[in-house]
Amino acid sequence: MQPDALMLFAAGFGTRMGALTADRPKPLIDVAGRPLIDHALGLAGGAGIARIVVNTHYLAEQVAAHLAGRAGVTLSHEAERILDTGGGLRHALPLLGADTVFTLNSDAVWTGPNPLDRLAAAWDPERMDGLMLLVPAARARGHRGAGDFTMDDAGRLTRGGTGVYTGAQILKTGNLGPVDASVFSLNRVWDRMLAEGRLFGLLHMGGWCDVGHPAGIAEAEAMLMEARDD
């Protein structure tokens, strides 16, 4: 069965954005005339995803006001502290109502095939507990640092290499249960999948830009302009 629920991560402080996030959350920063979170929601809508849960913490009231009245969108507020990706996803599970979900970061911009459609088409729950969308480091615009994973001929992942994780994935949520912490990264879940040979990857064939820092805004806008000119 294909997943039909999406966790959209939007709770962070956006500290790498400096003054731009002093009075607004990073998901509401404009890129090419649209808030970042609307770029992500456009992908979800294009893929026909029925349930979307957005986690919030920093300046949560602004995100809530922006999303008010959006069909199919529910907020998972992390009131006392940010729970990180793993803790935030587990906190949102009652709202997601699914044992297999998409996740997507709200601070990236994409061109080319819809990443959520690509993941859904390649998802094989018999072999996989997780499926990540990657881009080669040479095509990871706005990204600073090395890659994250290497993919073998079957698509199975190992740590290290030139494949940059884009923030888009499909994940079986049952793997969150054994983690004995309320605040934790999905890296802890991925490590278990890696050890069992059940974390796989897929290459995104279009453009991807990390908009986690101010320079990423111009890079993303240039990438979108290039895609329109093609």
Rank of each mutant, 00 (worst) to 15 (best):
L186E: 15
A181M: 04
H143C: 12
R139C: 15
P125A: 15
I37A: 00
M151G: 08
G216A: 13
Q169T: 07
T166D: 09
H66I: 01
D99W: 00
G161R: 03
H39G: 01
A79W: 07
R198K: 14
P35H: 05
L194I: 06
A50C: 06
E226I: 10
V109W: 13
D117Y: 06
E226Y: 13
R90N: 03
A47I: 05
D38C: 05
M193D: 08
N114L: 08
S185G: 11
F149E: 00
V211D: 00
L119I: 05
T21L: 11
G201Q: 02
D107R: 01
L6N: 08
T103P: 03
R141N: 14
A140Q: 12
G207A: 13
F184P: 02
V164H: 03
G212V: 04
G142A: 11
L93P: 00
Q2F: 14
L28M: 09
E80V: 07
R70I: 04
A10F: 08
F149V: 09
L104P: 00
D30A: 12
I217E: 14
G155Y: 06
G46D: 14
L131K: 06
P115G: 10
L186K: 03
T173N: 06
H213N: 10
E221K: 12
D124M: 11
N175K: 06
G112C: 09
L75A: 10
N114A: 10
T100A: 15
W208T: 06
S182C: 08
L6S: 07
R81A: 15
L203F: 14
